[in-house]
Every structure is written in C-alpha cells, then in structure tokens.
Computed example of a mutant assay.
Amino acid sequence: MKKHGIINRDIAAVLAKMGHTDQLTIADCGLPIPEGVPCIDLSYTIGKPEFTEILLELLKDFQAEKVYIASEIKEENPTVYSEITQLECPIDELTHDQLKERSRQSKVIIRTGEATPYANIIVQSGVIF
C-alpha cells in the first residue's frame, strides 16, 4: 500500500503512465466528457470534492510544466482564478470552447464536484530531470 501521495488507484495509475507533454484535465461537475476519454469521477455531492483541493493534491505528486485555463474564469470565478495564479508553472489561456476541444487530447479527465463557473484546468506533464 502506498504511504505518500495520491492513494486513489485510478489517478495514481494514470500519473505513473504520463510522459512529457501528456495532458490530463481536472474538471468541474459540468464539463462535458468527450467520447473516448476516460473519466475518473470523484464527485459525491454538489461542491465536493472541490476543484482546488484536487488540483493542489495532484500537483504535490505530479510534475506540471504548464496549465491551460479558460480565459472566462477571470471574471466569472475570480476566487478559483486567484488560486490558480498561485501555481508555480506557466498558465496559458484559451476560450472555454477551446479548452473543451483541447480536453479531447487528455489521457484522463478527473471530475470533481465543483459547481462554480469555469473551474476546469488542463495540466501538461513536465519532466523531473
């Protein structure tokens, strides 16, 4: 049994398989899941688990070189936007429609119970050397 890091076996398995520039998406409960992209659904009620809770835990166990967010989040969800801007990696902005289209390239979508607007992020894998 793992002692540290992500203990969710599905998430841990995906992280172990990720290579440089592979992407995963962390989504609110409303983001459409593209056909063919696996979904790890962590939601158990509206708002739980929170988007930022999952994002911050994932980043403790994962090397990110950049993230993609919807530009609409700045005005529509300033609280989550403020938390994302505290990350120590570059942030690229797309429109929400572009983000949804780009999520089709993700190795997995991790669905949270978050129920605030535009609380979605695509995390691109970096390397640890």
Results as ranks from 00 to 15, higher is better:
residue 76 E to H: 15
residue 2 K to A: 13
residue 84 I to W: 09
residue 41 D to P: 02
residue 62 F to E: 10
residue 105 Q to W: 05
residue 77 N to C: 01
residue 63 Q to S: 09
residue 50 E to T: 15
residue 55 L to M: 07
residue 13 A to I: 02
residue 9 R to N: 12
residue 116 T to Q: 08
residue 17 K to E: 15
residue 4 H to Y: 14
residue 113 G to C: 00
residue 7 I to W: 08
residue 68 Y to G: 03
residue 97 D to L: 11
residue 60 K to F: 04
residue 26 I to P: 05
residue 40 I to R: 10
residue 82 S to F: 01
residue 124 Q to G: 03
residue 43 S to R: 15
residue 103 S to G: 05
residue 111 R to S: 02
residue 127 V to Q: 06
residue 123 V to D: 04
residue 38 P to H: 10
residue 73 I to W: 03
residue 89 C to Q: 07
residue 96 H to R: 11
residue 52 T to Q: 08
residue 118 Y to K: 10
residue 58 L to K: 04
residue 64 A to Q: 01
residue 57 E to K: 12
residue 106 S to V: 03
residue 25 T to G: 03
residue 44 Y to N: 12
residue 113 G to R: 04
residue 50 E to H: 14
residue 17 K to Y: 03
residue 105 Q to L: 15
residue 11 I to P: 08
residue 20 H to I: 05
residue 14 V to W: 07
residue 90 P to G: 13
residue 37 V to F: 02
residue 127 V to F: 05
residue 44 Y to G: 02
residue 17 K to M: 09
residue 92 D to N: 13
residue 59 L to T: 02
residue 49 P to E: 10
residue 84 I to M: 08
residue 125 S to N: 14
residue 117 P to L: 15
residue 19 G to H: 14
residue 89 C to R: 07
residue 11 I to Q: 08
residue 119 A to L: 02
residue 97 D to Y: 13
